[in-house]
Design a protein around this nucleic acid. Structure first.
Lengths: 350, 350
DNA sequence: TTGAAAGCGCTACCAG
DNA sequence: CTGGTAGCGCTTTCAA
């Protein structure tokens, strides 16, 4: 009695055993038919499939994974935030690729916090995922221990990382910041500004800022101010950050932003205040988001293959799952887009 | 031998039994400690926890779900696309709420296709999710059968739906389109345009268009052209869509877009072509995305609580899981934002 | 081509 | 406070 009750409480889902019984075969035979494993007659298949259809059988993959030495089809994917279009595109690349090969994305938003990442890792690993994709190269000691012990394919994305825990795909953020800095210095700019956001964790954006700062120093210019807001890097932050930056240093000639959305925010602030871009002030973003190319002026930016990073990450996981040999690190590179929101200083001085 | 081999092949993960043995207690006792169920001494706890730490034990939740009459902590979430900021925000709302209560989002991108949704449903249900959140109110017959048979909380989001399969949260899209139409007609506009995208499935955007069209008809104006592009509703599409629309009908006085990103694209096209907004042409978007409020002119739009839709959907699922009584349908409403990208026609005629 | 038995890691249930 | 036993739905192994 109590058993029956328990059973009915648990769920009234149709099980393999019920299918088998209804079709008048053993569980094993039914199982073989469902997995199309071969070794059964056509008439048996027909009987079994008829019952599957009739009873609306949905297999319990939990039991499958559990019974066999298989893995689940889950891939855990940790990204910092969804509010940021950049990561959203990476995620889309991942999910498309994964989905095409019958895998599912289990989402994890870390809010740029390593502690959140650790907490999420602990949970997601308990579900026996087939693989893991995490953003960034820094993790808590415990996270590293978990990652190491998991024994499943792992890809660290975003920062290019020549000695990853397992695999890695991304780009060199320092170089991309350096590249933009050199380009701007080459145009003759000497008084630089930066507007971005700050997080507890060392992140890729700060590597870009470091590269930018390095060039400025080397070229004899000055980084008048680097404003790091404790907020999400979006349009608003760019707008108000620019206001703050210019209030403190109105002699800044060019501003580099953490991303394009912030840059567009800055652009609009300048426009509103009556500053002409690029004549009065130069603007440079990062990421080459769609909005960058429909502005009246083409935004100076750095193009990054967001979707591709995601796709490659997913491919790396899938290949590893299938035991295919795999390169450990992949640098997708970046591309400086000159745009028209900065200008040669000489022109101005003429 | 073969057993041992199999075991070591399967995985070298630490199991409860190993912990128990190492700590010199039974599996049950170890299990109780780990679940903090009570009924064990402090010294036992210490011993067990020490082994957990030492061996790096990660519980196998698959087995837990499988053994008890529990559910997994997964919640399947199907959204049409990630490229669209609107759905991204909804997803963020969902994942934040879910995460705060120890649940995980299993993502499903349907690409606006009911077939994709059906395929995804079949897979995700086999993983015994604790709940389901899907976008839209229309599903294939098979999907409906699956949804009905799943016996887990289900929320249909986006369209407000007074008779959902289980629960629903969203807004009346027809009304929101109607509201914008009435507002514009009230300003004196008579020649209307619309730019959006089309999908195989009946979607919310077409309900908005229907509402918009209805007002125009009723007010004696004309919908000169409704352009439905087979593309993603973003900046680009708005830009080029506007170009196409105006090439065909240059007498259009105001354009309503499927969303703000498209509207901003249109705005920039107009600017580039030397058309003054709102004097030469009116622009109205939908969604009140962040970019709408940093433009030189405040974009006329409809504000929708994206994040809240997600949060409420997640709350509905969680409450249902916990057996709390739950309202079946929730209308989050919308809010017309007048903005300054449209203008009273009388002013122009003076 | 088919089936019976054993067991995956864990928890419910009962007995001590 | 503690432990033994049974069994979740499925697959593996071996035998028929």
């Amino acid at each position: 009695m109590s058993k029956i009750q328990k059973k009915s409480f648990k769920n009234n889902k149709v099980s393999l055993a019920q299918i088998a019984k209804a079709a008048g075969v053993s569980k094993m035979t039914a199982s073989r038919v469902l997995r199309d494993e071969g070794g059964f007659s056509e008439s048996t298949r027909t009987k079994v499939m008829a019952e599957v259809e009739r009873l609306g059988y949905v297999p319990n993959r939990l039991a499958t994974v559990f019974a066999g030495d298989q893995k689940s089809t889950f891939v855990g994917v940790a990204i910092p935030e969804l509010g940021n279009e950049i990561f959203t595109q990476v995620l889309e690349g991942i999910d498309r690729k994964l989905g095409a090969f019958g895998h599912q994305t289990v989402l994890g938003m870390t809010d740029h916090s390593l502690e959140q990442e650790e907490k999420w890792l602990e949970t997601v690993l308990s579900w026996q995922p087939a693989g893991l994709i995490v953003t960034g190269r820094s993790h808590t000691p415990k996270s590293i221990q978990l990652l190491r012990g998991a024994g499943i394919p792992l890809v660290e994305i975003w920062d290019f990382n020549s000695s990853p825990l397992d695999m890695s795909v991304g780009l060199n953020h320092f170089d991309s910041g350096y590249g933009m800095g050199r380009y701007l210095a080459g145009l003759g700019y000497t008084k630089f500004g930066y507007v971005g956001t700050s997080h507890d964790t060392a992140n890729a954006a700060s590597a870009r800022l470091a590269g930018y700062g390095k060039v400025i120093e080397d070229s004899g210019g000055t980084l008048q101010k680097q404003l790091l807001l404790r907020d999400t890097p979006g349009f608003y932050t760019g707008y108000y950050g620019t206001e703050q930056l210019l209030a403190a240093h109105d002699d800044i000639e060019v501003i580099y932003y953490q991303n394009d959305n912030m840059a567009i925010g800055g652009l609009n602030y300048c426009q509103k205040r009556g500053l002409s871009v690029p004549n009065d002030i130069g603007i440079a973003g990062w990421g080459d988001l769609p909005i960058a190319s429909i502005q009246p002026y083409r935004l100076t930016s750095t193009s990054v293959p967001h979707l591709r990073i995601g796709q490659i990450a997913a491919e790396m996981v899938l290949s590893q799952i299938n035991g295919e040999p795999q390169r450990r690190s992949h640098d997708v590179g970046f591309n400086l887009i000159p745009g028209s929101t900065v200008i040669t200083r000489e022109k101005l001085h003429r």
